[in-house]
Design a protein around this nucleic acid. Structure first.
Lengths: 188, 188
DNA sequence: CTACGGGGAGAACGACCGTTCTCACATCCG
DNA sequence: CGGATGTGAGAACGGTCGTTCTCCCCGTAG
């Protein structure tokens, strides 16, 4: 067995961490599960991430980049700036329909460890602020009033929670309809 | 030390369970913490709730009754049926401002144990459906179209999540403003 | 060829936690 | 009075988990 170079070991670890942490919750996954899921030895795991919390941090950071990247890629396919705001909810719908969807990783992580782990609490806050900022940018570019941004953000958060807990994708369409009313209430 | 009668033992246990589970998360609280917080011996604890999951279940059930009771009591102080719908967000605001507020217990519990415990997943679902039903009743009694109900519900859920993670009560006012626009978009 | 340094597999350790057991004592009923 | 019952305090047990250690193999440099 050829020794694994650090980069691919890191990738495999984060892949396994993301699968397992997201599907089962962070506390329900042991380091040994990560080892089994990644094929990377425990020794190497601990040499790359000296404690579980650091693996969790890396997992959430990588997922944040990817999640916001996928959202932005989807939204940018839409031309009309006002439609872009609404496209956020179309993206949520496709996300909710993905097999294995279990709600928002940061909402879940915050519920699990927000009171215990400063790192998780901070990453959840940062992720939500970044998402809220992104929405605010879309609203601004659509020439809509700034007060609309947090409203759209709250609709999106509510849709994530409801879809995660109730196990249905209906909240995407419902939030979309609500956002449509909000946006068009400011139509020229 | 006079032996405690079962009812007050149960009450003390649930009081301690609610304080601790809500503040720290369910998995972060041990049975011994419950014993210490309640003053009820471990033996009695296990005779009343033979497993931790049953104590968790009782905690969530009692909190559900109380939470929806407090909401209803607040909303019923408002006379105008249309204002009642918006009063939900005023109630959220006062809740968010309570010391020790840490988000919605069911959202947090679902994030923590939804993937692991069927009981917690079911109670979270039931609680959210009950809240959505309550909102739907308010919307119906205000003579507003049914489609508005899930939109108001999602705004409320989003406000809870955002307030819990970001640690501010601003989402209550923001969601209130959004709901106001939605409601008045159907004004006669 | 050989000494060595890194890596893999997995045992081992120490702490924690849900649950049960021990034991001494108080209480109640004959 | 005396024995059965139930209770509290806390020790004990069994399992899990994060983390570290042991041991052995291999590739390589001198």
């Amino acid at each position: 067995m050829a020794p694994l170079d650090p980069d691919t070991a890191r990738t495999r670890l984060l892949d396994a961490a993301e699968d397992l942490f997201y599907a089962r919750g962070i506390q329900a996954v042991g380091m040994d599960d990560i080892r089994g899921g990644s094929g990377v030895s425990l020794k190497r795991l601990y040499s790359l991430y000296p404690a579980k919390e650091q693996l969790v941090e890396a997992y959430l950071q990588r997922r944040d980049v990817r999640w916001r990247g996928r959202l932005a890629a989807f939204v940018e396919q839409v031309d009309d700036p006002r439609e872009r705001v609404l496209a956020v909810f179309d993206w949520l719908g496709t996300w909710f329909r993905e097999p294995g969807f279990r709600g928002c990783a940061w909402i879940n992580g915050h519920g699990e460890l927000g009171a215990t782990s400063d790192v998780v609490a901070r990453l959840a806050r940062e992720h939500k602020l970044a998402f809220a900022d992104y929405v605010a940018g879309l609203v601004r570019e659509a020439g809509l009033p700034e007060a609309l941004a947090p409203q759209v953000f709250l609709l999106a958060e509510g849709a994530m929670v409801a879809a995660g807990i109730l196990g249905t994708d209906a909240p995407a369409a419902q939030a979309h309809a609500a956002a449509e009313v909000l946006v068009s209430s400011f139509a020229a």
